[in-house]
Design a protein around this nucleic acid. Structure first.
Lengths: 162, 162
DNA sequence: CTGACTGCAAAATGTTTGCAGATTC
DNA sequence: GAATCTGCAAACATTTTGCAGTCAG
């Protein structure tokens, strides 16, 4: 697991693509244009996307692709650790780029739904530590904090969106 | 958010129940036998349960309840922070007791699916720190590490279960 | 050329909802 | 007694699957 590497954002996509091509070849899988398109679309974005958002974005961009292929590709990308999955408490799963990206956690506001992304070196250190202490070899991680963001941290109870 | 309180396990269920009754009353909601049954079933268990497992367990115990009510009750319990939700990368959401329970993270093995639960004080400290630094008022959190447990941390690639 | 991949549409899940009748307060 | 809750079944949304045709290697 990349516990907080830093790289030039521009290069990341290319590196991820290379990594993808290599991994695919090693496993006897094929690099179709659809798969590359999904990879690029995810790395073009700086937030979580769900499968359908991806599908729509690609369509709008003129890439003919089916939902089935989007889902299948996301699976593949997950396996190669090029994207990560996150459950932000909404009804669909979110995906985001994972390669060359500093690990981060999500602070999800139960009132307005806003999502803050925070990176922290010490968090990464602790996690790595905990893993080696437990003989666990981490490949990815996902961390969500649910609560109230600065605009909503009054004494009032949440709107129960959770 | 309870960042690591410790309490006699036996008492926790009772305390959670009291908390639930109080919260419900405050919000003009009712304490039906079904809701209490769900609460107790969750607190009786020491692991994550999904909605259907809960439904089945209750059925087996002779509690007549419908899936709809299980789901609705889980929602309620979530809102009162008496259970927490976790996405362990399986297809269904898991729930576990949250009241009087030390915060913990999940290490999910991509090969065998086993889930290790780890508590760590320093993790809680860091998270609290990060929250206050960002003006975020945490109510709950969920942290999953995906990778390989001690039995599967060879050089071989994961079986791609993710 | 061959096996892997795509798209489609249909199926499978997991979860939510509307409504009539039961229940709690 | 009134409003809330339950259960049922139908509706939903998301994700998965089977299959025939397509395409990368």
């Amino acid at each position: 697991m990349n516990m907080g590497k830093k790289e030039k954002p521009a290069k990341i996509t290319r590196l991820a693509e290379t990594q993808f091509r290599t991994g695919m070849k090693e496993h006897g899988l094929r690099c179709t244009s659809e798969r590359i398109a999904v990879l690029q679309e995810i790395y073009r974005s700086d937030t979580h996307l769900d499968a359908d958002e991806l599908f729509v974005k690609l369509k709008n961009r003129g890439v003919g692709i089916s939902r089935a292929t989007v889902y299948h590709t996301l699976d593949l990308l997950l396996k190669f650790h090029l994207v990560s999955r996150t459950d932000l408490g909404h009804k669909h799963t979110h995906y985001e780029k994972a390669y060359g990206v500093e690990n981060h956690l999500h602070m999800v506001c139960n009132d307005c739904g806003k999502v803050l992304e925070i990176s922290d070196r010490s968090l990464s250190d602790i996690l790595e530590n905990l893993c080696s202490k437990n003989g666990f070899e981490p490949e990815s991680f996902t961390l969500q904090l649910f609560g109230k963001c600065s605009g909503h941290s009054s004494g009032e109870p949440s709107k129960y969106k959770n």
